[in-house]
Amino acid sequence: MSKCFIGLDIGSLATKIVLVNEGKLVDYRVERSTFDFKRVGNNLFNEILDKNSLNKNDVFIMSTGYGRNTIDIADDRITEITAHARGVQYFFPEAHSVIDIGGQDSKAILISKKTGNVMDFQMNDKCAAGTGRFLEVMAHALEVPIEEIGSLALNSSNPSAISSTCTVFAESEVISLFARGTSKHDIAAGIHKSIARRVAGMAKRIGVAPQLVFCGGVAKNVAVKKFLEEELGYGIVIPEHPQLTGAIGAALIAQEHNGS
């Protein structure tokens, strides 16, 4: 096998690793980051090398994500903003905009049609509202598994109005709606609409437009996609592996930097 490139995306909730060879995704792994994300990153790295019969010298590692600067096996590092912008183009070469909702933050990215590079971006601040963590807290409050909260929301015919943008206040609001007898479907729909409204507002500020790619772990949630489309007024696309776009982008950039 010719020189391989590894993209290691250490997010606040999940660590993703991909192996790329000649511009193609060969293998990948995803695991929860935990507090010891260095150990998780190292384990995933060793696993993917073993599985593909590779040595460390056979690969170039580009780290990205929240823990990119602290993982010592990386040869180089790049921000997740640049990595996602490149990674979505692996799946959708015509992509013009990106919305990435991860565990700790959400981002909107504008891609230059001419160069494929990042033209502008917006990130939420340190507040957890509009992120995967917000959904986790709300799923816990509704006592439903995180994997099911999206489909629960799609069964609503009368979404509740969740006015709080702060995760802590929104959780109290959800509990009080619950106490008033509002159905789980309607509360769940209200929660998803609240995320969609917040993220779409941020994305509109930089002028996102079709073709818009939705990625990050939250892109697996069907209700967030539906309500985002309603807020934006057009359809959005989701890659086959929405959680991997950052890692794939990092690996592809590593390949380009190394002239392969």
Binding site: I78, T79, I81, T82, D120, M123, K126
Partner: peptide, 22 residues
Amino acid sequence: ERDYSRANRGQLTTRIEAFLEM
């Protein structure tokens, strides 16, 4: 946009580095 808290240092780093990459 930022305040002086230590909590958002990681996000600030990402924004600045992403801008420099851009």
